[in-house]
Simulated scan of single mutants.
Amino acid sequence: MFNKFLRENKYAAIILAVLRVYLGYSWFTAGLGKLTGGFDASGFLKGAIAKPVTGPEGDMVFGWYVHFLKGFALPNVDIFNFVVPWGETLIGLGLLLGCLTTAAMFFGLFMNFMFFLAGTVSHNPRDIFIGFIILTAGYNAGRIGLDRWVIPFIRKFTNKNAGIEKQKVTA
């Protein structure tokens, strides 16, 4: 019943638009600040490796993630120096404009979880909670935004191409 409300109700679309813009502004300003202020993830990565998330007995909770940071992320920090600021900026832009909202929120949640696994709590729990509401709402979260026009265009385009593929297979 709540899912139906989130996914179909026009009043839910208004509430979702407010939540989406709030979260989008947060993502966009964080990303833009990193793009314009010079961003280097190596300090964050080194800190997450040196002081991982630990349990009550002092053992690493996400050892696999620390190994990922040490073995892949830190040696390839230039990739992360590009992906993080641009990812945050584009996620924010998608949410602000309501364009490809579900995809933007999916990647936003992915990044939130990566920060969370590295031990950054901050506003991540709140963002994850709001993000799951937006992701669950699907199209309705972007109905008051560019998704009103973009999603039908994408559906029309993909259905048109699917028909071409079907003709090739049957021929």
Rank of each mutant, 00 (worst) to 15 (best):
L69M: 15
L97W: 11
V121E: 10
F5G: 00
F39P: 00
T89H: 04
F132W: 15
Y65W: 15
V150A: 01
F106W: 12
I130W: 03
T101S: 07
K46E: 11
G43Y: 05
L109E: 14
L69D: 06
Y65Q: 15
L100Q: 05
K166W: 13
F28H: 02
L109K: 12
L45R: 11
D147M: 03
L97V: 11
G58S: 08
K46F: 03
P52A: 13
L69Y: 12
I15W: 03
I49S: 14
G38N: 09
G47L: 04
F39G: 06
I79H: 02
H123S: 05
E88N: 11
G92Q: 05
F129L: 06
F28V: 09
G163A: 15
H67F: 13
F110E: 14
R20D: 02
N76K: 13
G163I: 06
L96N: 14
D147S: 01
H123F: 00
P75F: 15
A162F: 13
G71S: 15
F72C: 09
G142Y: 02
G145V: 06
I151Q: 07
W27V: 02
F116M: 15
I14V: 01
L74K: 14
I14T: 02
F115R: 06
K46C: 04
Y65S: 15
I79S: 09
